[in-house]
Computed example of a mutant assay.
Amino acid sequence: MQNPAIPPLASEFSDLPATASHGPLRIEYRWVNETAATAPIAVFLHEGLGSIAMWRDWPQTLCERLGMRGLVYSRPGYGLSTPREHDVKWPVDFMTAQARDILPALLDALDIGMQERTRMWVIGHSDGGSIALLYAAQHPDELAGAVAIAPHVFVEDISVESIAQTKQLYETTDLRNKLGRYHADVDSAFYGWNDIWLNPAFRTWSIVGELDTIQQPLLAVQGHDDNYGTMAQIDTIGERVPHAQLVKLDACGHSPHRDAPDALNEAIATFIKSPSKAPTSTPARSPK
């Protein structure tokens, strides 16, 4: 049942058939800058507690800057997409399944053909950044390039500590009510994300090995004040993907599209317009 606090903001829905990795799914999606019908597509992959609504107007702003169309969707368990059943725990490789199964199935359902996919960019934040990296690794011939914003490629203590603190806030403050504005089933969204990250089995999760197969242009962005991960995340990307470009933002936390949108948009636009000319590591200051 839809949460009445979530306004119907022109979302559409796509039904995906069951596969070996998931049951039938209804995926909430939305096109932005849709009038640019022949432009390349940018697919936006949200964070661990994100949804279409939580992006707000950033995808629209960035797509207008890039001259692209944007496909924004809520992953299963989030927004108005099929909720996670409360007795279901996500597996350690849940992000791999998102890149391998869910996103390709959605592209198929929306009739996004191979020619369009070769011009497509994936732009992901946090868990979505990890999914963007995995998609780039798994589908090297179906992508123009990828942007990973505050991604995770392995689990750090700082991540687990911050996620444990978020659980306490969710259960003792009004955080649950605030998140409820963005998800039809807020407990499904929160505990799906929180439980897997706090699962001891997840401490050994890593996608570092998968990075080696990324061939297309790749930009990785991290804020210096990120309380969910250190620069070791994107530095590791730089080590494993020599052609990757790194941008490190001052005065910026875990959400550069909210903390430093001008600096982030400039970095992405510069990279996509001329990825081969971008410096290997660019310190960028966000406006004070």
Rank of each mutant, 00 (worst) to 15 (best):
T173V: 15
L143V: 13
S130D: 07
D187V: 06
P151C: 14
W121D: 01
E161G: 08
P200S: 04
N227M: 13
I214W: 01
G180Y: 03
V147R: 05
P140I: 11
G145Q: 08
L80C: 13
H139K: 12
I163R: 00
I102L: 13
G124M: 07
I112G: 09
A99E: 05
L218D: 01
H152C: 13
R84M: 10
Q138P: 03
T82S: 15
V147A: 01
V147Q: 00
G180N: 03
F154E: 11
A148D: 04
G129W: 02
A136L: 01
L103I: 12
Q115Y: 11
P83G: 11
V186F: 02
D157N: 10
L175D: 09
T213R: 08
P91D: 14
D108N: 14
E171M: 04
S126R: 02
A148Q: 08
W193I: 03
I149A: 06
A132G: 08
L133N: 07
G124P: 02
I163D: 01
H224P: 14
V122M: 06
V122G: 09
R100M: 11
L219N: 05
F154S: 15
P200D: 12
G223Y: 05
Y170L: 07
K178F: 04
D187P: 02
P151T: 09
A164I: 07
R119F: 05
Y135N: 08
T118Y: 11
Q115V: 15
L219G: 07
L110D: 07
S162P: 06
A97G: 12
S162K: 00
R117S: 14
G129P: 03
A184L: 13
G209R: 14
R84I: 12
T166R: 06
T118W: 13
N199D: 14
S188W: 00
P91L: 14
V153R: 04
L106Q: 10
A137F: 03
V208W: 06
A136Q: 00
P104G: 12
Q216D: 08
I123H: 05
W121Y: 11
M120V: 14
T172G: 10
M114S: 15
Q216P: 00
V88N: 10
I207E: 02
S126E: 09
H152G: 02
F202D: 08
L175C: 06
L169F: 12
S130L: 01
T172V: 12
V186H: 01
H139F: 13
S126M: 00
I149W: 05
S188P: 05
P200F: 08
L211D: 10
G192L: 08
Y182M: 05
I207K: 01
I214C: 06
K178C: 03
F94Q: 03
G192F: 02
V92T: 11
I149R: 02
H152V: 05
D174E: 12
Q115K: 13
R176A: 00
A97F: 01
V92N: 04
T172P: 11
L175T: 02
R203L: 11
H183T: 09
M120T: 11
L211Q: 02
R181Q: 11
P83Q: 06
P140T: 01
